[in-house]
């Protein structure tokens, strides 16, 4: 589990992990609606993380705990 920060850029969501200074684009997010947001997220570098599905944050950037499922660090 690690803290990550999700931002919005003009190309979509951006993933940032302060601890390891990893910044990458989010290719896909399992749930992306106002009521249910999160789930499995896939990164541009092939990494997969999991955010507990929750109500979408009111504004981004937003810090949240995420679990690493697969991929490079």
């Amino acid at each position: 589990m690690a803290n990550i920060m999700i931002r919005k850029s003009d190309k979509g969501y951006v993933f940032y992990m302060p601890k390891r200074d990893i910044e990458d684009s989010i290719v896909s997010m399992e749930f992306d609606s106002p009521e249910k947001w999160g789930g499995e997220i896939k990164l541009g570098n092939g990494g997969i993380y999991y955010i507990e599905p929750q109500v979408a944050p009111e504004r981004l950037p937003y810090s949240v705990r995420a679990k690493r499922i697969d991929g490079v660090e």
Binding site: M5, R7, Y16, P18, R59, P61, Y62, S63
Partner: peptide, 12 residues
């Protein structure tokens, strides 16, 4: 960049 990111999140 760390503090800029923090201020973006906390203070918009």
């Amino acid at each position: 960049n760390y503090i800029a990111r923090h201020m973006e999140e906390k203070y918009n």
